[in-house]
Design a protein around this nucleic acid. Sequence first.
RNA 1: GGCCAGGUGGCAGAGUGGUCAUGCAGCGGCCUGCAAAGCCGCGUACGCCGGUUCGAUUCCGACCUUGGCCUCCA
Length: 456
Amino acid sequence: MPISLYNSLSRRTEPFTPLDPQRVTVYLCGPTVYNYVHIGNARGPVVFDVLVRLLRRHYPRVVYARNITDVDDKINAAAQAQGVAIDLITGRFAQAYREDMAGLGIAVPDIEPHATAHIAPIVAMIETLIAGGHAYAAEGHVLFDVGSYPAYGALSGRDTEELIAGARVEVAPYKKNPADFVLWKPSTPELPGWHSPWGIGRPGWHIECSAMSAAHLGETIDIHAGGVDLLFPHHENEIAQSTCAHGGKAFARWWMHNGMLTFDGRKMSKSLGNVLLVHELLQQHPPEALRLRLLSGHYRQPLDWSDGAIAQAVSTLDGWYRVLRDLADVELPAGTLPVPETVEAALCDDLNTPQALAELSQLADQARLEGNARAKAALLGGGALLGLLQQEPEAWFRRGENTVDAARVEDLLLQRRSARAARDFARADAIRDELTALGIVIEDGAQGTRWSVLQR
RNA sequence: GGCCAGGUGGCAGAGUGGUCAUGCAGCGGCCUGCAAAGCCGCGUACGCCGGUUCGAUUCCGACCUUGGCCUCCA
């Protein structure tokens, strides 16, 4: 089944064809590690995790890189504010990031390059740009010369003159052109710095991604992904740097951008202060519900975050896991799980995850109705492609069980069973009320009574 | 001001020139000691105004409106 993906560069959905089907390359702009990430930051990683899962089904080898930016002025500021070493900050939050992403069911990328481990290729790339007349040194800085690259602005649909006219920032006096951006900047002794032909300094943000992408994936990659807020200037600058440093070779063949997560109707961002940290949400809600919510809208659309939306996701998962729990004794066929065509077709259509989830609901209905191994495997296989439904149903229903005295629950259920057998329904209902007070929900079924921990 | 996306039933959210999204919630019925779950059934949704068309939520134009980018940002 062919994959079609919307390409921000051409502004249309195109059949996806990798440069080398034996090695499909994907790069996602990762976090700057100076704090915990918020749930908006997790949308791209979740969405493109699904993309990579899909690609892996179609191609024997997919190399997926998601970087860690561990040199940045915000990191420096955080370290100074907290009075600790910079690498303490970056180490701590890079680890927190990995944990948060794992919590959301995101597979570990093949490569997780760190900017500070790529200073040599960054410097080399800057030297190449200077040699090619695309960059210049000025007052300890090295700047990219936007005027040297006529195609600048192709991705974001802007032209250089427009950028100058619309510039809202103060222009540094050493810039030839107001749109020129920093490749390298000087460091003072208390700031992180590396030796370079332009003195001790540190790289600018944009050049890191260009250099790391080239170092691990090659000069031309298949897909470069990130949030739409990075489209300009970050991705525009990456294109300029990489194209100019690689003799005009295309940098990324597909550019994919996920829409913003909104909260209170506005983009969730640290500068607006309306953020919800993944770290905390993972404590407050079933992680899988967070993932489901992030996949419940099309990745290019804005998605609003709210408690109600999370509650809906929890209810949906309740229904699906209920089906799987009822089929707990149905043996799966041997081998890998089949992926239902309907789910795959939805994802092949520019990663239409809402459609894929609708199909998953159909599969759940079928599994409930048919109750056989084939239907169960289809539901699980469809879920697997989306990174959902992979835990034991009992684990889903009894999450948070450590706060519950399971032995006491079982004891009460036994008492209730006796009461019901004696047709003492008043007593039985009293016991159920007692269980409800303990946060336990019960269901009488043909096979006996089940219990679940009440939804958080 | 420039560039770019949206406005779909109570909520979430796809999609399409002409019988159906889907989910959550709700309502009625069946089932159940009662619940829950399940099953059956139920909702005159597509911002506004024009245009094209036999027919538009879907195409075109204007308008209103929300948001994103133009500055660090996923």
